[in-house]
Nucleic acid binder design. Structure first.
Length: 274
DNA sequence: AGTGCGACCCGAACGC
DNA sequence: TGCGTTCGGGTCGCAC
């Protein structure tokens, strides 16, 4: 379940491993991942090279000569680098083969990830990219910005934190953790969130994302020939997936409820609705 | 416009 | 043990 920190880790690792390698072939084993014309997709890649890898929110952006390849990992998408001679394993859907005998393989158990090829000049009209809100580590993520976005919103703050057009990069896990660290009840209406609470949300988001990037980096070092970035943030989660377990602050049992259809974990005592 | 919810997927966890 | 059912994760598209 990659959130922004893992996508950033994947970007950093892939940058070291695949830039400027000539692409020899592209093998598409499950085409629904790709939202562009398959021939155009292949033609843009074969014979070219990745010149850079960028990121916007949870979108990876592979820069080719004239195109960008956008890639969203959704929940289970992973990239592996393998020797081309290695057998294709289950759930490897897109195989990009380089001239040096290695592959970049896109692996996705649930097939939810998406790729999309766009012309470079179209980046600033590509909705997936332009609609992304401020990122947790962006200086422009301020309480004034959040207050303006929360204004008039009747939805619970938990739901609003998952809106990528407001804060770009938080997923369900981080949203639960951010609200716990901010001592805010996840059901509280976004319009009632105060400036002080916005500041807590911003500070906690930064802290959590920074820590996860740091841990992602550490995890990567233990990988050898392949990389499957899954992150080890489960080691420090305070509330997520911890129903019934003691709150790390006050010891009362963590509650699990549904908000907007998503699992929401919180401490009744530490996150009182005020 | 804002909001709510099913669809997309499939493995793991659960219930019987 | 083996079967069927439920759940979850991010995002989109459709209905109200």
């Amino acid at each position: 379940m990659p959130e922004i920190a893992e996508v950033e880790t994947v970007r950093n690792v892939l940058k070291e491993k695949i830039l400027h390698k000539k692409i020899k072939n592209v093998n598409i084993l499950y085409s629904k991942i790709i939202e562009s014309d398959l021939d155009e997709f292949k033609n843009a890649l074969i014979g070219n090279e990745f010149e850079d890898i960028l990121r916007k929110g949870k979108w990876l952006i592979f820069a080719l000569k004239a195109h960008y390849l956008l890639s969203h990992l959704r929940m289970e998408g992973k990239y592996f680098i393998k020797d081309s001679k290695e057998e294709i394993v289950k759930h490897e859907h897109i195989i990009i083969s380089f001239a040096d005998g290695t592959d970049l393989r896109y692996h996705d158990t649930r097939k939810f990830g998406r790729m999309k090829l766009i012309k470079k000049e179209d980046l600033d009209k590509t909705i997936e990219i332009t609609k992304q809100g401020k990122e947790p580590l962006d200086k422009e993520l301020t309480s004034a910005y959040l207050l303006s976005k929360f204004k008039g919103k009747k939805l619970p703050i938990k739901t609003v934190l998952l809106d990528q057009e407001i804060i770009s990069g938080l997923g369900n896990i981080y949203a639960n953790e951010v609200l716990f660290a901010s001592r805010i009840n996840p059901s509280k209406k976004a319009s009632l969130i105060t400036k002080e609470e916005c500041e807590k949300i911003i500070a906690s988001s930064k802290k959590i994302v920074e820590k996860a990037i740091l841990m992602g980096g550490t995890t990567i070092k233990s990988y050898t020939s392949s990389l499957g970035v899954t992150g080890h943030y489960q080691d420090y989660l305070c509330v997520h997936k911890r129903e019934g377990l003691p709150c790390p602050v006050c010891g009362s049992p963590i509650k699990k409820i549904k908000i907007g259809g998503r699992s929401t974990y919180y401490c009744e005592k530490c996150q009182k609705d005020r």
